[in-house]
Design a protein around this nucleic acid. Structure first.
Lengths: 223, 223
DNA sequence: GCATAAATGATAGTAATACTATTATATTCG
DNA sequence: CGAATATAATAGTATTACTATCATTTATGC
C-alpha cells in the first residue's frame, strides 16, 4: 500500500496560523474531523470543538478565520491526498485503460484504512467529504474568487483524470463533465446507500459503485 | 406546451397550515422563492422574509414549522411538477428511446419559462433546486424518517425513469443509480458552468448538458 | 347583520451561535 | 534570563431560529 510518510501542505490562504505547525493546531484539526463526522457540519460548533480540546474558542480562531475556512482546509487536504494517491498509483502503468480504471477506483471507493501517517484520520475525513463537501461548493458564505482559488487542487484532480480520458478518446468533448460527474456521483451514491437507499441500487458486492462508474466511463468514451 | 392549470398538492406533513389555502400563505411561498434564489438558503432568514411580505415572523411560523420545512415544501412542489411534466410528455410516446430521451431532457434542462399557472415562479425554483436541494438531503436537522417520507416524490421520479431504462435493457443492474446520477449531475454541472467553470466543459450550444447525459445513458444501457 | 371562531398583527423574549476584544499567563527562543 | 510569541480566561456583540402572549382584523354560520 501507499503508506509513505508524505507530507501534505495546504495553501496558506486557508488558515491564519498553520495548524500543522503546533500541537494545538494539530489537535484542532484532528478533533474537528471527529466532531464534524459525528455531528455534521451544521451542528458542529467552535464552542463544542473548544470544549472537546479544552481550549478557548479564541485560540481556534487564531488558526482559522472561520468555521467555513476550517472545512475548506479539510477539503483541500483531502484532495491533495487523493491527488497524491492518484499520481503514485497510476504513473507507472502502461495501459491507458489500466490508468483510467485505477483512477476511477481511487475516486469512487470509500476509504477503509487509516494510513496513519499523520494526525488526520482519512476514513472519517472521507466520510466528511462525502456528506459535507457539496455544501461547501454551494455556500454563498465564501466569495467566488476565494472558492476558485481554493478549489485549485480539486480542479487539478479533475484535470488529471480528464487527460486520461483524452488519452483514450482524443475527440471526446466533455472529459471534465464526465469526471466531475463520477466523483460527485460516487459520493452521493454512497450517501444514498446509507440514508436514502431507494434512490440507488444497493448491492452486497463491496465495490459495486466503483464497478458501475468504471463501466459508465468506459462505455461512454469507447463509444 | 404544457400550460395546463394543473394543481400541485404537497404532502400535509410538510406544513402546519396549507400555504396554498390563503393569500398570506401564497405570499410566503412566492416571496421565499425570490429571496432564497437571491440570498441562498443559508443567508435567507425568516426575519428577512417577514419584512419583505410585511407580516410578522410568527405568522410565517403558523404555516411552516421551520425554515427547513419551508425548503422541503418547495422541493416537494418542484418534484411533483417535474413528475407531472414527465408523465404528460412521455405517456403517448411509442418508442422506448424517445421516452427515455424525453425524460432525460426534462430532468437535465434548465427551466427557462415560467408557465405561470400558479404563484410559483418555476425558473427561480429550478435555480433553487440546482443550488440548495443537495443541502437538504445532507442536513442532519431533519431525521432520516422524515426525509424518507418527504422525498417520496423524488423517489417516484427516479423510479419512473428507471423503469424506462429497464424497458430498453431489462438486465441492467443499476437503473436507479444511473438516473439519480444524471439528475444530480446535471444540476451540479449547471452550477459549475456558472460558478466553477474549470470543473466542467462549458459549451455555447444551449443543450450541451442534456446531450452529454443523453449519450451517457444510451451508451451505458445499450452496452 | 350579528355573534362566534379563526386568522393575522404587534410585540417581547429565549437560547444558541459565530466571531471579537482584552488582559493575564505560559512557553519558546535567542 | 529577558523578550517575543502562543495560549488561556473571560466577557461581550449581533444575529438568528423559534416561542409566547395578547390585541385586532377577517371570515363564517345563522
Amino acid at each position: 500500500m501507499d503508506k509513505l510518510h508524505i507530507h501534505i501542505e495546504v495553501s496558506p490562504e486557508l488558515y491564519l496560523r498553520n495548524p500543522d505547525s503546533s500541537t494545538l493546531g494539530r489537535k484542532i484539526v484532528t478533533n474537528s474531523i471527529e466532531l464534524i463526522e459525528i455531528l455534521g457540519f451544521e451542528d458542529f460548533t467552535i464552542k463544542k470543538l473548544s470544549t472537546k480540546i479544552g481550549s478557548p474558542e479564541s485560540s481556534i480562531y487564531r488558526y482559522f478565520e472561520s468555521k467555513h475556512m476550517l472545512l475548506f482546509y479539510l477539503i483541500y487536504w483531502y484532495w491533495s491526498w487523493i491527488e497524491y494517491r492518484l499520481v503514485f498509483n497510476t504513473h507507472n502503468l502502461n495501459s491507458r485503460t489500466d490508468k483510467i480504471t485505477t483512477a476511477i477506483k481511487i475516486l469512487t471507493e470509500s476509504v477503509e484504512e487509516d494510513s496513519s501517517f499523520s494526525h488526520i484520520n482519512e476514513i472519517l475525513l472521507d466520510r466528511i467529504i462525502m456528506t459535507e463537501a457539496v455544501k461547501a461548493y454551494f455556500t454563498k458564505k465564501i466569495t467566488k474568487k476565494t472558492k476558485q482559488n481554493h478549489f485549485s487542487v480539486y480542479k487539478r484532480v479533475v484535470e488529471r483524470v480528464s487527460q486520461m480520458v483524452l488519452a483514450i478518446s482524443p475527440t471526446f468533448k466533455y472529459p471534465h463533465m464526465l469526471i466531475s460527474t463520477v466523483i460527485e456521483g460516487a459520493h452521493q451514491q454512497r450517501f444514498f446507500a446509507e440514508n436514502l437507499p431507494s434512490l440507488t441500487d444497493v448491492n452486497p458486492e463491496k465495490d459495486y459503485i466503483t464497478q458501475f462508474y468504471t463501466e459508465l466511463v468506459l462505455n461512454d468514451i469507447k463509444k
